[in-house]
């Protein structure tokens, strides 16, 4: 790992981000969504709506940005001659994660300032947010390592948004039984657990989210190893 290389990739990607219309739209879309929601609910943002926006931001910005950046490097073969060892690939991932972190922070802060940051101003909720970010970032990295083209990124992103970003919507979609297995599984999804933090005072939701993050980290590690042996 080298700070020089990480900062090289970080500076390059920040400059590239500013000129990439696709990514800029991804970064600003959640803010527009927030503004619309805020207007239509007359400023009365409930916890489910708040987390729907947060889920949207995390999937589009955290997972989407890093996935797009990695897929583009692969598709345009810009990393040829740059990666000779796993350490160098790690440098690239860290540099890109930092760019993603900054993008997510900006979008999230603006959106939360519009909606009111009040409900999230406690330690457990903030911890939940951090774990959500890590989860979506790791999922984004593993999919970025996995895909080879920008076209497939949008497919994965739609799946990801539907499954993990807008999880609360799934339960309202169909007429699912309260006690069915599907509902029980969906109840354990990270966004739903993050909402549960506000309902109870126990640490159980945080624990379940930590398991999700660990799972995502393992998947990322497997994808990383696979990407290195493929080259």
């Amino acid at each position: 790992m080298s700070i020089r290389r990480i900062s090289a990739i970080f500076e390059k990607d920040i400059k590239d981000l500013m000129k990439n219309a696709e990514l800029l739209v991804m970064l600003t879309a959640p803010i527009l969504l927030t503004l619309l929601l805020n207007r239509s609910t007359n400023g009365k943002i409930t916890i489910p709506i708040l987390y729907m926006v947060i889920g949207g931001i995390f999937t589009l910005v955290a997972s989407g940005t890093i996935m797009t950046m990695m897929a583009e490097e692969k598709e345009k073969k810009t990393l040829r001659g740059l990666i000779q060892s796993p350490a160098l690939l790690l440098d690239i991932i860290i540099g890109k994660s930092l760019v993603t972190l900054i993008g997510t922070l900006i979008t999230l802060t603006v959106s939360l300032l519009i909606m009111g940051i009040g409900p999230l101003m406690n330690f457990r909720a903030a911890l939940g947010l951090i774990m959500l970010f890590l989860f979506f970032l790791l999922i984004g990295i593993s999919m970025g390592l996995f895909t080879n083209s920008l076209a497939s990124v949008s497919v994965y992103l739609i799946l990801l948004t539907f499954l993990f970003g807008f999880t609360p919507l799934i339960s309202t979609l169909g007429s699912l039984d309260k006690g069915s297995i599907a509902v029980k599984i969906i109840d354990k999804f990270p966004i739903v657990q993050a909402m549960a933090i506000h309902k109870t005072s126990s640490w159980q939701p945080c624990g379940i989210m930590a398991i999700w993050v660990t799972g995502a980290a393992i998947i990322t590690y497997v994808c990383f190893r696979k990407a290195m042996t493929d080259n």
Partner: peptide, 22 residues
């Protein structure tokens, strides 16, 4: 046949490789 960063300027491209390779 290597890809380069087409959106970036000549200088930004060179600056990136310059720093990357030290």
């Amino acid at each position: 046949q290597d890809g380069l960063y087409m959106r970036l300027t000549v200088e930004s491209n060179i600056a990136f490789f310059h720093k990357w390779f030290g």
